[in-house]
Write a protein that binds this DNA or RNA. Structure first.
Length: 134
DNA sequence: GCCAACGTTGGC
DNA sequence: GCCAACGTTGGC
């Protein structure tokens, strides 16, 4: 079981839309690091959902329901997609500013490498995030 | 809207 | 294989 953060701009694809669609294909990734992370995802893995540009907060969690396959938005077989389904929307969100201020979380890829859209999270970091918002 | 950070591209 | 130039992302 692995943990991840998925980043998306809410006016392009927000968590509410994922809830509405029930299952979404996470495609369009054109970054090698992010792609490699997609390939490591297994069914049942947990992905926290972060809103970039608007909100700047972790808003909910989702699970991987299908591991990687050829990205349907391109013929180039370099790129892959996975399928995700919502688990729940958090009652309290976790702001980027809170993440940056936290000793456990200030070094995660979300802070260090702001441009990466799919990034791993350790179980410790995941548990810590849940503790902060509960 | 600006700018810093970083990944990618292409010339050598 | 290096590195400068360029494009994109995302926080502010």
């Amino acid at each position: 079981m692995n943990y991840w953060i998925l980043k998306s701009e809410p006016d392009v694809f927000g968590f509410d839309q994922l809830i509405k669609e029930k299952i979404a294909t996470w495609d369009g990734v054109r970054n090698y690091q992010a792609r490699n992370n997609l390939k490591l995802m297994q069914v049942g893995d947990i992905a926290l959902f972060y809103h970039s540009n608007i909100g700047l907060e972790i808003v909910g969690e989702a699970k991987i329901v299908e591991s990687f396959f050829q990205d349907p938005t391109t013929d180039d077989d370099k790129w892959v997609a996975v399928k995700v389904a919502p688990i729940r929307k958090f009652k309290k969100t976790l702001q980027l500013s809170q993440i940056k201020a936290d000793d456990v979380l200030k070094n995660i890829a979300l802070v260090r490498n702001g441009r990466l859209s799919v990034m791993p999270l350790t179980k410790t970091e995941y548990s810590h995030i849940l503790a902060l918002i509960s």
